[in-house]
Every structure is written in C-alpha cells, then in structure tokens.
Design a protein around this nucleic acid. Structure first.
Lengths: 344, 344
DNA sequence: CTGTTAGCGCCTTCAT
DNA sequence: ATGAAGGCGCTAACAG
C-alpha cells in the first residue's frame, strides 16, 4: 500500500541531502550528533528500512550466500544448514538454499542461479565430479566469489573445504568390528567418484589389511543411502557360500535396512552379526537395537563452513585456502557391542 | 577476476544501444531477428549473465521469497521446505530460509530481515501469536507482499494458509485407540496458544465425549516435542492412582519417549498400553515397535504453500484469501494395533 | 560537517 | 526497429 520510504523522503523532510542521511544512518563519524539524532528520529517515524537491493547493486555485495546440497530433507544436511545459518546470522548474511537431488545438471543450474542472484559466496556439498562442474566452479572462484565445500568436496584450486576424516572414521569403525570378534566383514559403499565414499572404502580396506584379514570383493557392495538398498544388499551377501558376519556400512539408512533384513532372517545382532553405520542419524539411537555409527558433527561442520567463508570474504588479499578436517566421533552402540549389549 | 559483462559491453561490441540489447535479450517483439541473433551470439560469447540485483531494483521484484520456520533440522519442516523449493524452482523464484528456534523475538527479526531483502512473499510457520507479531504481519500484507502460513498459522486478514486438519487427525487417532479397547486415554499436548495444538486437544476431547468417556484433566500433560519430555510425562502419568492405558501424543518425539519409558517399566505395548503419535516422523516407521502416527504430508503442504503464493503474486487484484486444509492420513502401526500386531 | 555528482546494471517511456 | 534519457535507492568521491 504505502510506498516504501527512501532516504530522499527523510532528506526532504529535514532539508538535508540524501548523502547526509545515508551517512547518518550508516554511522559515519563525520556528522554532527545533532543531525544524526534528527535523522534517526525521522527515519523511525517514517518506518524507514534500508533497501538492501539498492545497497547490494551499488556495493557489488549482496550479503547473501548460496548453499547447495543434494537434498535438504535429511538430518545430516539440514543440521549442517542450521549450523551455517546460525553462524552467518550475526554477520548480516542470509542463506539461499538449492537442492540438486543428486543430479549433476541440476547442480550446474543451481550454481548459475546463485551466480545470477549475485551471491557473495558459495557453500556446497557436491554431487558430482565432472569436468564441466570443475570448470564452472573455477569460474566462480575467478569471479572472486569464495567457494567452500563441505562434506562432499572436489579438489579445485583455491576452494576451501570442511570435511570430516572419513578415512579415519571408517578405519576405526572397521577396527572396532574386528576387535569385537568379526572376521568376515562386508562393506556397503557409495559412489566411489565421491571422495567421502572412496575414503570410507579405503579406511575399511586398510583396517582389514592391518588386521591381516583378506579382502573379499564379494563383500563390497555399492548401495544408495536407502533402507531398501540395504535390505537388497544384505540379501545378496547371504547368497554367498561364505557369508560375512559383520558389516560396515557407509550409510545409516542402508545399515538399518540390513538390520531389518537380518532380523527377518532371525539372525541375532550383534551376537551372530554386527553392524556399524555412518552418519549418526537420529534413528540410530532411537532404534530398539541402537545402531553403532560414525558421527559427523553436522552443526559444527556448518558453523565452520560459514566461518571459513567469512574469513575469506574479510581478507580478500589472502588467496590462501583453508581445508579443515574434523575428527569423526564414533558412537559404539548395541548393534556392534557383543560384550555389554545395552539397549537404550 | 574478469569483470562481469553487462549489456553495455555487448552493446558496444555491436554498435547498438543498451536498450536494444535489453530488448533482444528479453524477447521483445519489436526487434529484427537479425539483430536479436547477433545479440544472443555475442552475449553468449561474452558469458553474459543478467544481474538479477539490478533487475530487481529496477522492477521492484526480487524473485525471492522468505521462508520462516521454527527450525530446519527436523523431518517435517525440512520436507515442507523441500516441497516449497521444488514448486518455486520453475518459476524462477528462490528461497531464503530463516529459523526462529521458537523465539518470538527472532521471528520478528527474521521478518524484518526478509523485508529488507525485498522478498516478494513470505511463507511462514509461526512460533508466536502476540500482538506485535500480528501487527508486523499486517504491515507486510499492507506492503502488498503476500503472506502464506503453513502448518502453524495465525488468523490475519488477507493472509492465506495451508494446514492440515489437526482436529480431525486427533479425533480419528483417539477414536482408533478407543476402538482398540483403550478406556483411559492420556494426551500429550503442546502450547495451546498455537492452533495446531489447540485443535489436536479438541479433537481428543471430542472423541472422548463421543464415546462417553469422562475427561480426566490429570491425563492431559503439556510437553515440548522432545523424547525426554515424553519420558518425564509418562513417569508423571504413572504416579497417578488411576493409570491410563493409552496415549495420544501431539508429538512423535514425545510418543517415542513414552514408549521407551513404558518399555523400561516392562509394560507391553500395545497390549497393555497403546500409543498414537502425530507427525509421522521417519523413525516412527523404523522403530522396532513401529509407532502409529498422523501423517501431515509435508511435501504436499510445501508445494501447495508455494502454489498459493504464486497464485497471489500473479493476480494481485485478487485480494482474496485461500485457506487450504489438507486431510491427515492416519498410519496405523504396531504401537496401537492389538489385533494383528505386525512389526515391520 | 554537509552538498553535489555520478554510477552500480537494468528496463521503460518517449522519440525518431 | 532502434536510440536517448531517466530512474529504481543507495553510497563514494570530490568539493566546499
């Protein structure tokens, strides 16, 4: 209804120039306290609100950052976003969120959308590692827009990243299964083009090696992070003559599917078969048979991602890259603890 | 690095005016196909991208909508957001997300932030019903910025809403418990200032009345949507002389807490005590004892919310309000099904 | 301390 | 079919 009031409105009312008003509003020091007080008062009475769009156009900064994730409706990613948002809030930045649904094309579209929206930074958990992707991100960086990967990264020069030590998480989880007596350990892997899954796979392999357990390629199955994939993969494992007696899954969802399938087969978890997941999704605790899992501290990851961006934006000179690797925290729960099988 | 290319760059290169370029790019008809082709070609070769900020400033539309939610890291809300985002994507709108963490002050701050960001619309699930809040939202509407509530609404003239029929969901859930033989039914309620909780409470009450079961105020406990609150509330119920034998909880989380506590007390669910939740959080399915719950179809809710916004923005003339009420879908699971106690 | 001028990039009259 | 000019709201540079 009422037209937006601008600095001109308040300037006119006070017989001042717009510049003066702008200065008064922005805390410029070279202005009399008296004028400032008047300006502030009139601004308030007129319900003045700065038009950020105009400011953004003028300054070349939009005070918005783009966040790209595979999807928002899962606990890990939404928690990371929560962390990002909380950390950014105080600095006046807001967050624009896009989802790729694991589609590389969509990821490219999203990056372009955000570029057009003049975001000051790009925080992303990629779903892809193609050349095209790499080139586009390089282009973003060349525009002096800081790029910070979180969780799922690609190695692009001058891009920063915040990840967890997937290798170590996987290694420790597998070692734990071995320590608990497992001898034949299966692994549910993800798309190995993505570093996180590659690293988890390597951690698994190295734990076997370290323990002098032979690698069995039949035991490694690629799944999507879904309950049904976990069920199917477990079925597949149980068609083998030499069945495994433990599982390290890169995905909590697949781990849950496996457990459900084991239960359907009347296999005692963890006594006959133990399971370790990855992600520490809430349901791993809630499950009647609580599921061991590797925690990825999503909120911390989000906050750090935002912090790295803020640092970058503050000292542009610094072409340096920051690559933070968080330590995973293992949650040992009933699904892998034979000794004291505690149910929550 | 490379400065953004503008329509002037491409105009200069072609010895045309910026206006012509703008027209060519925007599909204006009064332009020769030849010129258009040239413009498009050069634009492409120069990697031209429209500066949305400038366009926004000029047009007064930002092509962004603000979404305010209590928090993003829970399944229901992140799914709604997913729905919103998907529906809006094709229309060129993007989504700016803010969280209130159930703080009324934060909600007001967020609305102001979004206003400053010149959002074209406001979609919100409120955490508050204060006067100040009401006035601010009225102000937003008076600026001709459409407001659409989802899930948690307040009644503001000219604001639209998309909700589910909480009353009916609660009524049917309670009726189901009664049909399954429950005679003394407790209720976990939420903040009754919020319509959703008030409606669920009423649905519960009316189901009792309909079935000639006396209302017992000791059976109604206010909880936050947390597992621990559910545990504590159940403990409290079990201090009563006349203990209930069923529970309709407004929150899945509290329902889960109750079930955990019942289990700790060796009470057989559902045979000695049956439970119905609300929200259909994923864990209600995953739980070993699957939990009956009222589904709120979050993605559909999100899509509809976005659709209502788009309709509003398209025909501004229409001062009309749209209030969509979705039918809840009840999921009858093991926690309340005495007859065929199926575990998933 | 304050005013004037100019420009961020785009679109939209109004001319031609 | 195209060009010139002005303005969206704000701030920075340069005067005074």
């Amino acid at each position: 209804m009422t037209k937006k009031t601008t600095i001109y409105d308040i300037a006119k009312k006070l017989n001042l120039s717009a510049a003066t008003v702008s200065r008064a509003l922005n805390g410029n020091t070279r202005i009399s306290e008296e004028t400032r007080a008047k300006v502030l008062k009139v601004a308030d009475s007129l319900n003045y609100e700065q038009n950020k769009l105009a400011r953004a156009l003028q300054s070349g900064k939009s005070y918005s950052v783009g966040v790209i994730v595979p999807r928002i409706d899962n606990n890990f990613l939404s928690s990371v976003i929560r962390g990002i948002e909380e950390e950014l809030q105080d600095s006046g930045y807001h967050v624009i969120i896009c989802q790729t649904h694991e589609s590389p094309e969509r990821e490219i579209e999203n990056i372009n959308t955000l570029l057009n929206a003049q975001v000051d930074g790009l925080l992303l958990s990629t779903c892809n590692v193609s050349d095209e992707n790499f080139k586009l991100i390089t282009k973003v960086i060349n525009k002096n827009i800081p790029v910070v990967f979180f969780d799922r990264k690609i190695d692009v020069p001058e891009a920063s990243s915040v990840t967890i030590d997937d290798y170590m998480g996987a290694y420790l989880a597998t070692m734990h299964l071995i320590k608990e007596g497992a001898t034949k350990i299966a692994h549910f892997s993800g798309d190995k083009n993505l570093q996180i899954y590659e690293s988890r796979y390597k951690g698994y392999c190295d734990a076997l090696k370290k323990s002098n357990i032979a690698y069995n390629e039949d035991y490694v199955i690629k799944v999507r992070s879904k309950i049904d994939d976990g069920k199917a993969a477990l079925k597949q494992l149980f068609t083998l003559k030499d069945k495994p007696n433990a599982l390290f899954s890169s995905s909590d969802f697949a781990a849950l599917g496996a457990i459900q399938e084991l239960k359907a087969n009347k296999i005692d978890v963890p006594n006959e078969f133990s399971v370790f997941g990855f992600g520490n999704e809430p349901f791993t605790q809630f499950n009647e048979l609580s599921i061991s899992s590797v925690d990825q501290s999503p909120i911390k990851m989000g906050k750090l991602t935002a912090t790295v961006f803020l640092e970058k934006i503050q000292n542009k000179l610094d072409k340096g890259t920051k690559n933070i690797v968080l330590e995973p925290e293992l949650q040992y729960r009933a699904s892998s603890n034979k000794k004291d099988n505690v149910t929550v």
